[in-house]
Amino acid sequence: MAVVTQALRSEWTKIRSVRSTVWTLGLAIVVTVALGALISALTKKDFGNLPPRDKIAFDPTFISFAGMGLGQLALIVFGVLVVANEYSTGMIRTSLAAVPQRGTFLFSKITIAALLAFVVGMVTSFAAFFVGQAMLGDYGATLADPGVPRAVIGGGLYMTLIAVFSMGVATMLRSPMLSLGILMPFFFLISAILGNVSATKKVGQYLPDQAGQKVMQVVTVGSDTPYGPWGGFAIMVLWVVAALIGGYAVLSRRDA
């Protein structure tokens, strides 16, 4: 057990002593909150002109999370850099020479980074919600509305899982450029396209972000997904677990 405590402390020192941590996490908060506020404000201004169908399906909580699609990219960068920088700098050899138990090393690193991402995710989610609702004014929701607390907490969890998923993928790919080159376009474009084009929707809705975002929705009128908010979240958790198992398998098998 002592090894685990030591590894956790070491990883905390590592993560707080590089600037990329502050930059990526700060950017995640700022982008998500600011973009959510902007889109909320625009929606309020335009609400009268919306067609009735959209008015019925209007989800003030989800609108305030509109910045998350962009903000999550910063968390992906955070997750990738935490893991892959060990490889790109060669630090991994120094680290593994100090902790020969590779599982302890990997999961200590991911635990610390996930905790940090969780704190930042929650702050982002709540800030985006309150700022967004303030922009929406009369059309907004409150935390007392049914389903809203789940959605806001779910938003924080979603951001945490996106970061952890990136860490798992980066452990498998072992290169920051390769990991970012795959994850960024995937979550920014490909997943959204697959999840919204009718031909691929059946498959697309099981992608980690498409499924995970369900937990942030309160109004689900007109949605035909075969799973509920927590069901979608569970699908995302499965993706994350798979990425971590893959990462661990690669780390323990391959030469450092």
Partner: peptide, 20 residues
Amino acid sequence: KAVHGGRSARHHLLSLAQLA
């Protein structure tokens, strides 16, 4: 050169010391 260039020498060694 197997050191994260953004980390100070002291933090680099501190993280290794804590690990051990």
